[in-house]
Deep mutational scan, measured.
Amino acid sequence: MDVFMKGLSKAKEGVVAAAEKTKQGVAEAAGKTKEGVLYVGSKTKEGVVHGVATVAEKTKEQVTNVGGAVVTGVTAVAQKTVEGAGSIAAATGFVKKDQLGKNEEGAPQEGILEDMPVDPDNEAYEMPSEEGYQDYEPEA
C-alpha cells in the first residue's frame, strides 16, 4: 500500500510541476504579447503594419512553449490582441483601416495563427491545408 501511495504522490508532483510550467509559459506569452502591443503603439504610420505582424510573430513563438489545451486559448487571445492593436492603430490615425491585415508588401496577414497546427491532446499534428499553395516548377 505504501508503494501505491508513494507512486500516487510522485504522479501528483509531476502534474503540479507540469501545471506550473504551463502557467509560466502562458505568463511569458502574455508578456511578449504586451511587449508587441507597446511596440505597435510606438510606431509611426509606416511601421504600424509591420508592428502588428511582430506582435503576432512574438506571440506565436511563445505559444510553442505552452502545451496542451492552453495553446488553443493563448492563440485565440493573441489573435484578438493583434486585431485590437490594429483597431487602436486605425482609431489613433497611425494607419488607414484599409491597410490593416496586410503586410508591407500588401499581402493579407489573416491566418497567421489560424494555420498553425495545434492539437490540445498532444496526440497528432496535421499540416495546414494546401489550398493556398501553388506547385513550383523550376525553369529549365
Rank of each mutant, 00 (worst) to 15 (best):
T92R: 09
V49M: 11
G93S: 05
L113R: 14
G93P: 10
Y136V: 08
S9H: 04
A90Y: 11
I112N: 13
L38N: 06
N65K: 08
F4P: 12
D135G: 04
G31R: 09
V37L: 06
E61Q: 06
A11D: 01
G93I: 05
G31D: 14
V63H: 03
E105I: 10
E130P: 10
Y133D: 12
M116G: 05
T92K: 06
M127Q: 10
E126D: 06
E123C: 01
A56T: 08
T59N: 01
A17W: 08
D119N: 04
G14Q: 08
V66K: 06
D98S: 01
S129G: 05
A27C: 10
H50W: 02
A89M: 13
G93W: 11
L38G: 06
N122D: 10
S42C: 07
T54N: 01
S42W: 12
D119V: 04
G41M: 06
L8Y: 00
T75A: 05
G84F: 12
K23G: 06
V55N: 05
M127S: 02
P117W: 05
T92C: 04
T92Q: 00
V66R: 04
K96Q: 02
L100F: 14
E46W: 04
K96Y: 04
P117Q: 11
T59C: 07
I88M: 08
G31N: 15
K60D: 00
G51D: 02
Y125F: 15
V70P: 00
V3Q: 14
H50G: 11
D135V: 07
Q99N: 05
A11W: 13
A19F: 09
V77D: 14
N103I: 07
A124R: 10
K97N: 12
A91Q: 05
V71C: 08
A140N: 09
E131P: 11
V95S: 03
G67H: 09
A56M: 14
V55S: 02
G67I: 06
V74L: 11
E28L: 11
T64M: 04
G36Q: 04
K58V: 09
G73E: 15
H50D: 15
V63Q: 00
N122A: 12
A85S: 03
M127P: 02
K60M: 03
G68Q: 04
F94P: 04
K21D: 04
D2E: 01
D119G: 03
E104M: 14
A30S: 03
A78Q: 03
S129K: 06
T64I: 08
I112R: 13
G84Y: 12
E46Y: 07
E13I: 02
G132C: 04
G47C: 01
P120D: 04
Q62S: 02
L100W: 03
D2Q: 12
A27M: 13
G106W: 11
G132R: 11
V118S: 06
G84E: 04
E105H: 04
K10S: 03
P138K: 08
A78F: 12
T59A: 01
E131H: 13
S42I: 15
E123Q: 09
L100R: 05
D119R: 15
E83H: 08
E57D: 13
G31E: 01
E20T: 11
E46I: 00
G132Q: 02
V15E: 10
E57Q: 04
E114H: 08
A19N: 13
Q109H: 07
A91V: 14
D2W: 03
L100E: 09
K32W: 10
A69Q: 14
G106P: 08
